[in-house]
Simulated assay, not measured.
Amino acid sequence: MAVLRTVIQDTHRKLEAAGIPDARLEAEVFVMNVMRMARQAIFSEQEAEVSEQQQASLDSMLERRFSREPLAYILGQREFYGINVMVTPDVLIPRPETEGLVEHALFMALMGMETTELTIADVGTGSGAIAINLAIHLPAAKIFAVDVADEVLDVASFNIRAHGVSDRVSLAIGDLLEAVPEAVDLIVANLPYIPSGRIPTLQPEVRMEPALALDGGDDGLDLVRRLLSQAKDKLKEHGIILLELDPEQVPVVQALALKHFPEGATGVEQDLAGMDRILAIHRQAPE
């Protein structure tokens, strides 16, 4: 019977040979999952035996990964801003850069707005990761989490219930802000923003994610334009919109935003790589 040390080494070798990025880290994650062990344990218990059943489970997972199925779909979950959320192939896998959207929303809510008893719309909620984190950190807020497909909202619903925030997060199905039943203080949106022509050039793992969550049309901004048009009727007088964008799109969307809200103002926040990533749109320019 194989021991943990050799299984990790063998898994690393197989993943590396298959051209999987971060093969060593993924090998450790797969073994941790199969063995149901914490990260430190797989190093401190290197001579622990791996059963035939555990090896078979690991082999099954690796076959899926060799086809470039994303790790998060295989494991069925992803860590995001300190919580684990269930993910399926029906939803986009939450990205580390989107944590910046949550951070900036919390900063705006706690420091830049008149009250923490906010009404918030998370548009394109997907797994519900953004809405759940906002509900956890803003217990007085009322949040609407919106998407366009029942199968997506099924995932969000599971996660919302799992994290105990269903009393503060309401799900709605429909076209962006049209599904939001009342005016809101804050709109948070990580909409599809990849240009259609770029989709075939993406990593194989990304291409396995739902096209509905990736493809933003010819220039990637189809849904952003529609959101800004709808926002005039759904954003309160001193409301704020936070959008995650490709850095190249930021100047274009800034100009669009000021056409819709000529008395407004915009600000840009960078991601961990120093790239312009989050665009804040104030309906009324701050005094």
Score class of each variant (00 low, 15 high):
residue 166 S to E: 15
residue 19 G to C: 12
residue 262 P to C: 07
residue 141 A to S: 14
residue 159 N to W: 06
residue 233 D to W: 09
residue 87 V to N: 11
residue 70 P to C: 01
residue 8 I to V: 14
residue 160 I to H: 02
residue 134 L to G: 09
residue 250 V to A: 11
residue 80 F to A: 01
residue 193 Y to V: 14
residue 231 A to Q: 05
residue 10 D to K: 07
residue 279 L to D: 12
residue 178 E to T: 10
residue 117 E to C: 14
residue 17 A to Y: 00
residue 144 F to Y: 15
residue 266 T to Y: 11
residue 80 F to M: 04
residue 69 E to D: 03
residue 125 T to N: 09
residue 225 R to D: 13
residue 212 L to Q: 05
residue 275 M to A: 13
residue 77 Q to E: 15
residue 92 L to I: 12
residue 274 G to M: 10
residue 199 I to R: 09
residue 40 Q to W: 12
residue 237 E to S: 14
residue 276 D to K: 10
residue 216 G to N: 04
residue 249 Q to I: 10
residue 3 V to K: 11
residue 29 V to Q: 05
residue 89 P to V: 01
residue 196 S to W: 04
residue 285 A to K: 15
residue 282 H to A: 12
residue 163 H to G: 01
residue 52 E to T: 08
residue 226 R to F: 09
residue 37 M to K: 14
residue 214 L to H: 02
residue 208 M to R: 15
residue 227 L to K: 02
residue 93 I to D: 06
residue 99 E to R: 05
residue 249 Q to F: 13
residue 97 E to G: 13
residue 82 G to H: 06
residue 60 S to C: 06
residue 72 A to Y: 03
residue 179 A to L: 07
residue 109 A to E: 11
residue 44 S to R: 02
residue 40 Q to I: 13
residue 98 T to L: 06
residue 260 H to L: 02
residue 147 D to I: 04
residue 165 V to C: 08
residue 256 L to C: 08
residue 138 L to D: 11
residue 135 A to P: 00
residue 85 V to N: 04
residue 80 F to V: 08
residue 107 F to S: 15
residue 33 N to T: 15
residue 17 A to V: 01
residue 242 L to G: 09
residue 237 E to T: 14
residue 123 V to L: 06
residue 127 S to T: 14
residue 71 L to T: 07
residue 67 S to N: 12
residue 247 P to L: 04
residue 126 G to H: 05
residue 84 N to C: 02
residue 129 A to Q: 08
residue 184 V to W: 02
residue 62 L to G: 03
residue 155 V to Q: 04
residue 171 L to S: 04
residue 27 A to V: 07
residue 38 A to L: 14
residue 94 P to S: 00
residue 63 E to Q: 15
residue 108 M to G: 05
residue 154 D to V: 01
residue 218 D to W: 00
residue 209 E to S: 08
residue 22 D to S: 14
residue 241 I to G: 00
residue 67 S to V: 06
residue 92 L to F: 14
residue 284 Q to G: 00
residue 175 D to K: 09
residue 89 P to K: 04
residue 88 T to Y: 05
residue 45 E to D: 09
residue 99 E to T: 08
residue 47 E to V: 07
residue 86 M to E: 15
residue 56 A to P: 11
residue 46 Q to D: 01
residue 271 D to S: 12
residue 34 V to A: 14
residue 68 R to Y: 12
residue 278 I to Y: 13
residue 170 S to E: 10
residue 218 D to S: 11
residue 78 R to Q: 15
residue 199 I to G: 06
residue 137 H to E: 15
residue 95 R to W: 03
residue 181 P to A: 01
residue 252 V to Y: 14
residue 15 L to S: 05
residue 212 L to M: 10
residue 182 E to M: 08
residue 42 I to D: 04
residue 49 E to L: 13
residue 160 I to S: 02
residue 175 D to A: 11
residue 47 E to K: 12
residue 24 R to Q: 14
residue 83 I to E: 06
residue 265 A to I: 05
residue 95 R to S: 09
residue 24 R to C: 02
residue 281 I to D: 04
residue 276 D to R: 11
